[in-house]
Design a protein around this nucleic acid. Sequence first.
DNA 1: GTCACTCATTTGTCGTGGACAAAAAAGGTT
DNA 2: AACCTTTTTTGTCCACGACAAATGAGTGAC
Lengths: 317, 317
Amino acid sequence: MSDSSTFETDKSLACYNIAAVERDTGLSKDTLRVWERRYGFPNPVRDQHDERLYTLPQLEKLRLLRLLIDHGHRPSKIINCSTPELAQLISANSPEQAAPPEIEAIIQLLLSHDIEAFRTTLMQSLMRQGLLQFVTHTVSALNYWIGEAWLSGRIAIFDEHLYSEHLQNILRNAILSEPGRGSAPRVLLTSLPGEKHRIGLLMVEAVLATEGAACVALGAETPAIDIKHAVPAYAVDIVALSFSSAIPQAAALAGLAELRTLIPHNTEIWGGGGALARVRKAADGVLLLRSLDDMRYALQRWRVEHLQPDGQRKTPH
Amino acid sequence: MSDSSTFETDKSLACYNIAAVERDTGLSKDTLRVWERRYGFPNPVRDQHDERLYTLPQLEKLRLLRLLIDHGHRPSKIINCSTPELAQLISANSPEQAAPPEIEAIIQLLLSHDIEAFRTTLMQSLMRQGLLQFVTHTVSALNYWIGEAWLSGRIAIFDEHLYSEHLQNILRNAILSEPGRGSAPRVLLTSLPGEKHRIGLLMVEAVLATEGAACVALGAETPAIDIKHAVPAYAVDIVALSFSSAIPQAAALAGLAELRTLIPHNTEIWGGGGALARVRKAADGVLLLRSLDDMRYALQRWRVEHLQPDGQRKTPH
DNA sequence: GTCACTCATTTGTCGTGGACAAAAAAGGTT
DNA sequence: AACCTTTTTTGTCCACGACAAATGAGTGAC
């Protein structure tokens, strides 16, 4: 029902209703209204029906605020800064130390907008190192430093989108051409609703592919109930979930605990990713993986427990 | 702040707060509250602070309701049906005619959960037809019939997720191995916030690849302002946007009109996808593409207008 | 019969303001 | 520095009224 999300006034100044601002900034309607009540910003004009109409400059300031808040600033401290002041705060956010030279070189290529050179450099890095090394070293470092560069305003969102797309191309291509496919265990790989990052999932899938495990990849954001139904349908041994650091730690743990109540206990649950990196203990029957190497050990452990020396299952499911 | 989204009561019956239900059903909090007020369902218990706690059966019924409403049923007519009655309504939703045999065969493979056979069959279909034919015929038919099968309850959501993932693998791999890359025009390809479907974008990218156009693929859900900034950065000639039929038609048109006000008029805007298939006219300066073939003609037209016979630009940007 | 138009009903979103849980910061102790 | 407690900040939840947008039914023209 949010069709006419933008209006065109006489002066051709586009105005956004509250639903459009929520979509474009990620700030909930409740938050937008309570900021207006408390801090006086944003202070949108009203249409003839007393509904809020935000201007483009307001929307741009809100996006800067969101970025700074995600980086640790408090709303009340920065909400009355001007847009240029906010931009300055963002650029002041330079990381403590510089990225390693080979990572920095790739970021520079991304900044140069030379797509071809960017793609071929990544491909060469993959060829030189092999898939496993490429994923566990180069890609994880790239993710970290590109995130930093985004927070410090060095690279734009669309550059990050482009990075994500091309890395997906490369990883999916590499996974497809990995020779061994489909021996035990069978791993269902996905994330819960709210976790949109796909690169982490693809990195896991790549490691599983190099280890020769059968991967049932469902992409991102599968509701827990659907995972429950998929487990018997695909006869999986393990459900692996990825939680990026964009997810609050407590939400990740709650999701794992909920899933544990839904699926049978002879199916293992593995959780990993940035959100869980500093967690000590999760729910009973949930295995925390703090790195991709951790997962390779867990895979070995599973095979020792469940497979005979000839590779056959001890108890076929 | 929605960390403890699920609770565990004495009877180990998981309960969901309103934020978790919104995430898992796609129904907004406002809608959930107004249904309760008007129709008496869902009727969640309250915790000690008078906040709603939904049960798993309620959540499952809400998901069925959502599915039926998306398929044209009215909330007031079905909201007081029991869960089995709703399930029956869904299975009664059989499509008028059967899918073509080669499509039906692929759907059967998806239903059989034999991932390997599913993948190889798709690959063979691609090899036999070539990328262009595969995309314009097989993939578009598959999208339609899998959507139908989902609405009629024949296939589960996780099956559709798996289909989407594997098709992405195959299409991205095919695009990567398409020989000619990077001649004019340069096309920026993405979708606006709210449009999450990636398959449509990849289909467009595949057609552009076979036609030898340079594609700047940003993935799904790029806010309009970011598209505005990406246009000069990547020096694109055309911005192509995809709108699946999950998006209301009016919202798609509003998005296109907004974008038209943001980016310079010597950059063309093309819009396509299910949401726009039955539209007559969009905003001035926006080209509607009703099929992938339409886009090929538009590409030809652009080249005639902007390129000299030797392939050089008439007016380099 | 189909198209276009108007009118009635249904349905989801928006408004207000108060309350308070959860997260973060500040203060105090070992 | 690590840990617990208190205070402050911050976002979410509540109720219920209003009404715009979407849908369906009714009417008339071609």
